[in-house]
Design a protein around this nucleic acid. Sequence first.
DNA 1: ATGAAAGCGCTAACAG
DNA 2: CTGTTAGCGCTTTCAT
Lengths: 328, 328
Amino acid sequence: MANIQEVAKKAGVSVATVSRVLNKQAIVSDKTKEKVEQAIKELNYEPSLLGRNLRTSESRLILVLIPSISNPFYAEIINGIEDTAISQNYNILLCDTDSNPERESIYFNLVKNRMADGVISMDPTVNKERLFELAETYPIVQCSEYDEHGYIPYVTINNEEAAYHAVKHLIDVGHKRIALINSDEKFLYARERRQGFERALAESNLPIEDKWIYHTEEVDFEDGQKAMAHLLELEEKPTAVFAVSDVLAIGALKEIHSKGLKVPDDLAIVGFDKISFSNMTYPTLTTVSQPMYTMGCTAVNMLIDRLQGKEVNSVMLEHELIIRESTT
Amino acid sequence: MANIQEVAKKAGVSVATVSRVLNKQAIVSDKTKEKVEQAIKELNYEPSLLGRNLRTSESRLILVLIPSISNPFYAEIINGIEDTAISQNYNILLCDTDSNPERESIYFNLVKNRMADGVISMDPTVNKERLFELAETYPIVQCSEYDEHGYIPYVTINNEEAAYHAVKHLIDVGHKRIALINSDEKFLYARERRQGFERALAESNLPIEDKWIYHTEEVDFEDGQKAMAHLLELEEKPTAVFAVSDVLAIGALKEIHSKGLKVPDDLAIVGFDKISFSNMTYPTLTTVSQPMYTMGCTAVNMLIDRLQGKEVNSVMLEHELIIRESTT
DNA sequence: ATGAAAGCGCTAACAG
DNA sequence: CTGTTAGCGCTTTCAT
């Protein structure tokens, strides 16, 4: 556990010189550089980032906020975040809030306490007020979920359009009675996807029936099951379902099967997110793919730009409808 | 962004006193405490952990190593880790190595550079040599996967026994031709589960046939599909399959379906891990449940004990066979 | 090209 | 009970 002083002493130079070869920017003569490197090797020296970070007053840590690590939707985004962060010498502090304000508060404090330089929030359940407050002082980027009226830059997709495409596809293959399994409309993405759903219906002169719109409490498999169970009890049943997340769609699929019905013959279904499991269901799930990896990369790049004081603009990425067995 | 000095000045006390009220251990008179708290509030002061950590030479960060964040098996363990870490004022640096030695190397350096106080490794693909080397200097705990000959403490389950139970169950419901979809036997858990598999077979005087043992390259859905495709091409087909992970089992299930076969009538299948998906497949998957949350908690507690210089002993937790539709 | 010295923000002896 | 002071390990002027 040698420190920079011991290295300097052993190499017969000053600590400043050691620091210089460590950071390879300032000019050091080849001879001294060699001496220093020799000393570093002999002492097995590893510079302490604690010291460096205090001095430069940065932590080089990015706080990444997600509502639940169990939700596979976030996995691929995080891959993108991690790759990009590492390439820029940052690391990530992955925090799942479990939609728990207390936890969120702990994580926000990490930023205030300078243990993180900025935050990427992917948590739709985040306390908006507190996030905005934090954003006044610290760089924040929102990823996937965002706030339409806020000034926090974000990277997302066009949810309205994506939902429109999904529902349009159901209409195109002949469905007229289409249900929506939505999550709580306190989430912007839920409101936007509903709008897309309604636009597609309206465009084809199909009625928008309240009874075919179900709002779940959470976004777990069980919520999808419950939603579908409800829809299947209706007098006039839908022939197709658009669920705003694959997890919900998969729960719905499960429920359909356990009622002895067949997909897509009795009921077609389309999900959202293209999580890897959506290709393992029987039948495979038609879904909307988001460029998750790219979203993660973009979010990090935006945040680092902000960290460097640059202006950044919000970004909207392309989505893609993946047609699989559950609708055809 | 006030610092401790400004607070001290405003409160008319020394920085030491401010530090004392911050850490609420030393005795400070109520009057001065109030003054300090007032100053803190007025200045909106938040203590910098960078300064504190440098001084106490700890980062209060725990490095958590997983091979892939997309593998749902780790999600619940991480929940346990996070809850326990937070309750002890630690935070976690979640790092997925992607089984990439270069990344691993970056993460190991985080420890050497004092950005993390210790590591919990759940990565079976980790470079053992380098892990052992690191363990000579820094506290490390292994979770789930471990090394039988190493001196690194671990928390895990009895894999041999768990596999034995799973296979015994298949035998009990009448199967005689049982295949094993195993991952690479460079992993200890894979070797142990194979032993359990063989013990169950031997005990019932069933032959252990090489042709019914398949080793996958990775542990993704696709590997399970490939494995099953292979087994279904055999002249003499098995009537049951034990897969050493739910992800593999779900891939196998998919393949069975797409060949037009039925589970469990044509082929029974049991997985391992009890990931949440395993209850959403059709039919639902019989599997072995590990106490994942508890494993995470235990790992953190062990690590913190080590961080405090205490001796810790490895722990083996209980597993449970969850019988569902895929075998009955 | 290199060194001396200041200081990032905090904690912890030590003194009083 | 409180203040003074010395660092933790590093980077970065400012001289030389």
